[in-house]
Amino acid sequence: MMVIANNLLSILILMMINIIITSGGNSQVNSTNSTKLKTHPAINIRESAPSEANAYENRKFVPFSPDGIIGKSRVLMDRQKRRAYDGAPPKIPHATTETYAKPLGSECTTCHTNGGYVKDYQAFAPVTPHPNWSNCRQCHVPMQTSDLFHFNKFEGISQNELKPKGLTAFLPGGPPPIPHAVGFRGSCLSCHAGAAAIARIRTTHPDRINCRQCHVPSNANANVWQRGSK
């Protein structure tokens, strides 16, 4: 019961916030430029069709404040430094205690479930994309030393090398597909919105909530489906 009540409550909150925000949102229609289109013969694009596609692009994007009150902003490089390869669980970049609280994981989730400004680190705590897993240190470990036992020659895939195909929208102004594996990062907003989000990957429209209504995982290698093919 509690769980359901909680969910209903949060959905209500979200709906309310949504109303507040969208009432101020502008929905200017951008005309699509058909000359740039690789038109599929089966698709007949009506040039003047009203579209929501670029509605958010004109929305003011407020960058992170550099003046200190707001806290350190994170850049892509930080993200990369904390992972052995793209997709690896990041290490814990701050000091931790080995003293735990009950329930397990609460020493992490105090900050990482709701986010918010953490004075000790002068930064906004990123929100976990998988709050349902509570054995945090199963995957995330802190650093006690920067020494090595022996040098390691491993080179993993890095975000710089990430050049997924199908990153761009099929139609100009259409919603781009998700360029990375979702895995346990199912809650899009924890990385793409909020104060702790890396500026470059922040969404312009966090209020839309149901991200995967428009953004779908991409798989550029999948063949075009045809009747009779598998």
Partner: peptide
């Protein structure tokens, strides 16, 4: 607002944890 959304979103398992 976005912070509120981020934390609230983590409470909707059905949609977000597909």
């Amino acid at each position: 607002i976005s912070a509120a959304l981020v934390s609230a979103s983590s409470l909707i398992p059905g949609i977000l944890f597909a």
